[in-house]
Design a protein around this nucleic acid. Sequence first.
DNA 1: TAGCCGACATACGCGCCGTATGTCAAATTA
DNA 2: TAATTTGACATACGGCGCGTATGTCGGCTA
Lengths: 197, 197
Amino acid sequence: MAKRRVETMEENRAKLIVAARKAFAEKGYSAASMDELTAEVGLTRGALYHNFGDKRGLLAAVVDQIDSEMALRAQEIGVRAGDDWKGLLAEGAAYIEMALVPEVQRIVLLDGPAVLGDPSKWPSQSSCLQATRRTVERLIAQKALKPVDAEAAARLLSGAALNAALWVAASDDPQHVLPKAIYTFHALAGGLLTKPA
Amino acid sequence: MAKRRVETMEENRAKLIVAARKAFAEKGYSAASMDELTAEVGLTRGALYHNFGDKRGLLAAVVDQIDSEMALRAQEIGVRAGDDWKGLLAEGAAYIEMALVPEVQRIVLLDGPAVLGDPSKWPSQSSCLQATRRTVERLIAQKALKPVDAEAAARLLSGAALNAALWVAASDDPQHVLPKAIYTFHALAGGLLTKPA
DNA sequence: TAGCCGACATACGCGCCGTATGTCAAATTA
DNA sequence: TAATTTGACATACGGCGCGTATGTCGGCTA
């Protein structure tokens, strides 16, 4: 075999993160057992504490990964919709839809903030938040948006979007209320426009 | 003495809730020990499990209480500012400021949703949410707001407000960013107006 | 190839939760 | 008022999960 040490370490880290995404998503952070989790991938807690420090460290790594994936995907959708006002709306809608995925909801929106604190203190500092802030800054520079504080706007927009998603997901008929959520989000975001549509 | 049984029971329930508010606020839900908590008010876990079923039940009771207090206070501030558009803005600002209180943040905004699930499934069904929904419904009936879904609007507004509060609280200089948050909230909410100011 | 280093396994102690059982005062009935 | 019941709460028990300290075996370096 003669496997490199760093290779196997990377592999094990990856395996643990994969298992953690599943366990945290299905059982929630506190109910997820580290013994079970590690055993599922043929390891023990020793590997976990060596690689991630503690249970929170593993959660941080998972959150970081999911958050990055989300930001990337939302930005793709955003730029595809245009580098103007349409782009911001599409980005917001993308966040709402991504937040419907149980994994995202449970880990990033519920347990993440509760266990790790404010997203701005995450290792990724919330890529999602930063991405929308940059978009807002660009639109303000283009005079398309009112000269509000970009950070504040990003927070409010993402907060609205993510909370809307929680509502949609908790409703009886998600596919029916989703358009309402997106429509209302559009209306709300329109408040930032310098010249209303 | 000759105390009534129901009296002492009410007293004990109240004492436990008071202690729980403090413990949950200071240590967070998972780190709060039920043994310590009950001992502080001269009881044991027996009383707790008899009155509230389990740890989550106690949290639910605490969340319910705080949520009710918040809704009451916000509505007071809202009607004082007027039964029109101004009232909704004042209500939103009130939520932002209340969410700065560590107790509210930790218990209602972070641990509450993570442990108890979506606010719509809480015993109080989130009085805050219901209050702003009613306000929005009234304003829509007055044609002051666009005919959006009231539930959706309430969710988005409260989500924006509460997330803004988390941002303000996590910032280095809360008193400096608070006005930015409120200003941006006003701008955002303006998107719902039929005729922009 | 000999020795070291580090990634991971093993073993231990502690705290905490939930439940099953016990107890004693207040409430009820005659 | 005395006997009986009720139920609010205390006590005792079992189990699980986390974090840490210590052991081990394979790759890495000289």
